[in-house]
């Protein structure tokens, strides 16, 4: 039983006009075995939350904490966080020219496990992972994300999720840009991951269609850098029908009143 705990997280980015606060006090607890969905309007800070937990250097945590089983995550380097069991499926996966998927995966697996995977089983494991994602086996020899279609990049992220098998997965709009078949394939991958029972998922999405395949235990509405409401799976349906309008209006009202940046 593991816990990813985000407490009163404030995060800024550097802009030409100085620091700009994006996250304004996020509180979120994900326990292993749980699936949380985060929904919210464009620019509300969902990716910022995902990147901040993963440790992207662009995002500066000004206050608050992120802990994994009580251990300070913010103190760790990006790779240490991954080795501690965090995984981020990115909204825009990065191309790495000249580095084959197979080489990349083997290097990552070796780093995470602390020892090189056994060659015999490894090739089989990679092929199985590709097969599960309905990806051609040739992908293993291609450069990481280079020339991949949008959907192929997303499948590649979930393929990595299954191979690296972290404790907590943050999926940032993994469902965006997927066709119907790919959506099912990707959802099945996430469900296999969750079905192990002791894994946590934080699923960032704009669409309820993925929630037909992946049933969240909790749904959070993310507005203006913080969680504005939470509920069960039924909340997603309501958002689909009503939109974010009332949260956005309430959110901007709060900002206009001039609430202090750190509570």
């Amino acid at each position: 039983m593991a816990t990813l705990d985000i407490r009163d997280l404030h995060v800024s980015v550097q802009t030409e006009d100085g620091a700009k606060e994006i996250l304004r006090g996020v509180d979120l607890t994900v326990r292993s075995g749980e699936t949380h969905a985060i929904m919210g309007p464009n620019g509300s800070g969902k990716s910022t939350l995902a990147y901040s937990v993963a440790g992207h250097p662009k995002y500066q945590v000004t206050s608050g904490s992120v802990t994994l089983d009580g251990v300070d995550v913010l103190d760790m380097t990006v790779d240490e966080r991954a080795r501690a069991g965090l995984f981020l499926a990115m909204q825009y996966p990065v191309e790495v020219p000249g580095v084959s998927v197979s080489n990349f995966l083997r290097t990552a697996k070796t780093a995470i496990d602390g020892e090189a995977p056994k060659l015999r089983t490894w090739i089989k494991d990679v092929n199985t992972a590709l097969d599960k994602m309905s990806m051609d086996r040739d992908f293993a020899q291609r450069n990481v994300n280079e020339g991949f279609s949008g959907g192929e990049k997303k499948r590649n992220e979930i393929m990595q999720l299954e191979l690296l098998n972290p404790r907590f997965a943050i999926l940032d709009e993994t469902d965006s840009g997927l066709d119907i078949d790919a959506l099912r394939v990707v959802s099945e991958g996430v469900n296999r991951f969750s079905a192990q029972g002791d894994r946590g998922v934080l699923l960032i999405t704009h669409y309820t269609r993925i929630l037909r395949y992946i049933t969240p235990d909790y749904v959070h509405v993310f507005v203006a850098g913080r969680i504005a409401e939470q509920g069960g799976a039924e909340l997603a349906e309501r958002l689909e029908a009503e939109g974010y309008d009332r949260y956005v209006r309430a959110g901007s009202g709060a900002v206009a009143v001039g609430e202090p940046a750190s509570s």
Binding site: G55, K58, T77, D79, A82, V94, E95, V96, G98, V144
Partner: peptide
């Protein structure tokens, strides 16, 4: 490219090795 390094590191690869991988790729490509 900081993004490339971040991506590799986010998969558990230590920064020195990530750098090596990026340079390796830069040349392997050609």
């Amino acid at each position: 490219d900081d993004l490339q390094l971040f991506y590799l590191q986010s998969r558990g690869i230590p920064v020195d090795e990530a750098r090596r991988l990026v340079v390796h790729g830069f040349f392997a490509d050609i």
